[in-house]
Design a protein around this nucleic acid. Structure first.
Length: 108
DNA sequence: ATCTTGACCTAAT
DNA sequence: CATTAGGCCAAGA
């Protein structure tokens, strides 16, 4: 693997580990891959992960628990629907009980 | 090759 | 409490 695209691979690996019905943040992933301040690129990696069925991008939200990337999915409410399908309650584009559902790869 | 933009986060003011 | 600035990596013009 090239060291360049290795970043995406690391991100995907972490996202794949997100348990069912749980969510995590871009910052947590960025920290898990060793670049705490490259959370932007994590989101960009998600954008490129559309082809990968193993990568649940809908379980990744921002630090406030807001579904910032919902607009990038196929439908306007696809992301929210996927989360609710897993039992995650979403209200006003925000994950309810976000602190409880938050899963940190570091603590794993 | 340079500049801009983007599913963000943290620290400083 | 709100606003600004800086940083990171990748892709498009």
């Amino acid at each position: 693997m090239d060291a360049k695209s290795d970043f995406f691979q690391r991100v995907y690996r972490v996202v794949r580990r997100i348990p069912y019905g749980r969510v995590t943040t871009y910052g947590a992933i960025a920290r898990a891959v060793g670049s705490p301040q490259s959370s932007r690129t994590v989101g960009y990696a998600m954008n490129a992960s559309h082809s990968l069925p193993d990568v649940p991008a809908h379980r990744v939200v921002n630090r406030s628990g807001v579904l910032t990337g919902k607009h990038h999915f196929a439908g306007s409410n696809t992301m929210q629907r996927l989360l609710e399908q897993e039992g995650v309650e979403v209200r006003e584009d925000r994950v309810v009980e976000f602190d409880q559902l938050l899963w940190l790869p570091d603590a794993n």
